[in-house]
Amino acid sequence: MVILQLPYIHGHHLSQQADQPLSQMELLEQVPKLQTRYPEATQAALVRRFIDGDFRYVFRVRTQDTRFLVNAFDLEIVSLSADDVRHIADLTYADSPVPKIHAKELILDAAEMPQEVNPAHAPVWRVEFADARKTTFYFAAETGDLLTQRHQAWRVFDVMWMLHIMDYTDRHRISTPWLYAFTVLTFFIAITGLWLLLQRHVLKLWRRSWRA
């Protein structure tokens, strides 16, 4: 765990920016209209995303419970197709040539989410590439935002983390009875070992020097 660098485990090297840089920033003037049309909106982010065969200006709107895309010009809701997600995944993949997509699935229910990703992200598109690292991207189903990326090194690290914290089910609880028991046992072994060592080498020498 300590040898593998944390940024590498997080897999930032696997992905790149799939959106295009913004040039029409004056579209931000649409935000007051957007708040009137979607009064429950808490955030509106202007991005230029690959949708329906071209890079389009959209607002990613967040409310307390949902997130969705709206066209930055007419403020109509935009929905992503499976084809759009495939294109965004190809653009997000950092290496070239981009390998084939091995598997792509829409996961709607939090209960069906794989263990390697937070269930709170549901619904998501899971896109797995046919490369040696088994690179897998998770995209928000409504917006196409890259939520997280996983690869084989991350999965190995996760197993190591599970063994480290001794939570063999959820892999995130740090207060498990196993951990308590083994910590106390290890402490006991270390302390008694230290005591025996002292007794054998230090105390004997000390007594001998007193006798002499």
Binding site: P21, M25, L28, V31, Q43, L46, V47
Partner: peptide, 13 residues
């Protein structure tokens, strides 16, 4: 904003 470089996202909150 134009002086920042390549701007990818502007979030209003």
């Amino acid at each position: 904003l134009s002086q920042l470089g390549d701007v990818y996202e502007i979030n209003v909150r």
